[in-house]
Design a binder for these strands. Structure first.
Lengths: 140, 140, 140, 140
DNA sequence: GTGGTCTAGACCACT
DNA sequence: GTGGTCTAGACCACG
């Protein structure tokens, strides 16, 4: 887990970690109830300062991805986050628009975009299915 | 044009301007050959310092969206940017993945995502078509 | 003559014209005594404002490449410019260093550089010879 | 390091700094992995505003000479830049042509040019060798 | 008129 | 400590 961080990216390390964690959760590699890395473990694995690791976890908690229980550790939260429908729509719409603009800028045709979208979606579902059938989480 | 910037956003003002300009180009609201805002105009409209406006335009030039001629102004470039196919694929794939992860995190179902994708794509095409048929650019 | 100017280059148009003129003189395409373009001719051929053309010619005169005789026009000057030996050495050395740094930065090997240098030099001499044998100047 | 800037030169200060840094890298005085000056150090040594120093370093990063990590500093990059062969050839050819034209303009004979080229090349290699054998970088 | 550069000084985020 | 951003205001070169 957390294999590829780019220290010379403009996006801060702690946010890169957050993104990757969210990715793992979305892909099903980290499942609700799974225990998350401790600050120390994360710092070692990501080769990052402990402060940075702590900040990443803090941010994940703020985003409702994990939940820390004192004395027990931090765990992946179950279910979708509570969010008002209108905001949900807005976020999704914005994500779609970003994709379309990127594609247009790259000169991707509508047909190609549809095709790539479908393929990616299927690959995504396949990976999630694989994770659902796997009984023991092993995410590092 | 370029009216709404969020000074409290983590993404810098000059990049917010860049994003909006790229959006206008992708949507066809700004077409190849069109004159872009001058640094001074942009600074006034975006309520930003001249330096910041200049930086945004320089960034747009670096990205190949725009071409500036000292003493004359800057103009929208025609055609898609030159980019090696493998990088193009990687960028598109990454954009697709971001969308899927965002959707998954929001708890959007596959069916809903497909539907919203198609709708957004059609709306996008419609808007581009409208701009293509409009002879006189008036984007401010 | 003066075919390829790049209006969106950081180097000003009038200097681009100067460089090209010096190139033609060095290659022998323009020979001492040849009549140079008038400001108007230059402006038309280079598709440039007359002020810009005038400035280019003015700069060429300052550099000792051409000489304007009132009422007669401007002519290419003969012979090498008068310059003190030490400065000459310094200029040449600086030009050599620029080449070496550029080559090193590009990862060009010493052998390749030697080879390319020799080839370029021969091509250069060949072109000069061709111009010397041509009786009538036709440089536009 | 980076001591002598010419404020009255037409080439901007931040580019003069870039040139000198590239020179040091090409000569081997700055080696891959070496730490580069911080923005603040550079500003002091070059007697330049912090903004100007930062701009120079950003430009070096854009050119692939250096890699900066926020909060850590900037470091010299290893290896030659990725560049397509055709562009590489074009750049080298252009650099060669500039040298030849300069030499011709100065009235340097072919023989002298060959001699000076060889000498400069040997001096260049010698300096690089000296730097390679020196274990501790001390470039300021 | 255009964009480009530079300084001064401030504030912020990241490690 | 690091680099990044922004403003204010000045000066310059180009077309």
């Amino acid at each position: 887990m957390i294999p590829d961080l780019d220290p010379s990216s403009p996006v801060p390390l702690y946010l890169q970690i957050v993104e990757q964690a969210r990715r793992l959760v979305a892909l099903g590699a980290l499942r609700p109830g799974d225990r998350f890395l401790t600050v120390r473990e994360l710092a070692v694995k990501a080769r990052v300062n402990r402060n940075t690791a702590a900040r990443a976890i803090q941010e994940l908690e703020r985003a409702g991805v994990v939940r820390t229980r004192v004395g027990q550790g931090t765990f992946v939260v179950d279910g979708a986050p509570r969010i008002e429908p209108s905001r949900r729509q807005a976020i999704l719409d914005s994500a779609l628009e970003k994709l379309l603009i990127e594609a247009q800028t790259l000169g991707v045709t509508v047909e190609e975009l549809r095709r790539r979208f479908s393929r990616k979606l299927e690959a995504f579902q396949k990976e999630r299915k694989a994770h659902r059938e796997r009984p023991n989480p092993s995410t590092d």
